[in-house]
């Protein structure tokens, strides 16, 4: 579990990046916090640099959209989901519970099949 920042440091529409086993991006999508691996599954771009639209983030390079709830891409050019990580808020501190590397959360995998 990583204490990432205080709630007020991550206002709606903003993102922050920290390093766990790999870089992780944390987003505040209109009050909901989401965390995913920071590197786009397509090529080498940082999703925390992307643009938030609802609970979707647009990759800053080739504009693939990822659903932050599941990690699944909703359009080309990305084909694989990004790992998602549970986020909790306690005492105004945002915590990310980083999933061990190499383990795609069940849900994301399933959702991906439906979307692809």
């Amino acid at each position: 579990m990583f204490a990432v920042c205080r709630v007020e440091e991550l206002p709606p529409g903003e993102s922050i990046r920290f390093t766990a086993d790999v870089a992780v991006a944390v987003f505040n999508a209109d009050g909901e916090f989401y965390a995913v691996d920071d590197t786009c599954t397509h090529q080498d771009a940082s999703l925390s640099d992307g643009f938030l639209e609802g609970c979707f983030v647009e990759c800053p390079l080739h504009a693939a959209f990822f659903d932050l709830r599941t990690g699944a891409p909703t359009c080309l050019p990305a084909k694989r989901p990004v790992r998602t990580h549970p986020v909790t808020v306690d005492n105004d501190v945002v915590y990310v519970h980083v999933e061990p590397h190499g383990q795609v959360p069940q849900e994301a995998g399933r959702e991906q099949e439906e979307v692809a």
């Binding site: 640099d49 643009f51 390079l61």
Partner: peptide
């Protein structure tokens, strides 16, 4: 500067 670019582009 991908982040600032993305915003400016929008």
């Amino acid at each position: 500067t991908p982040r600032a670019f993305g915003r400016a582009r929008r």
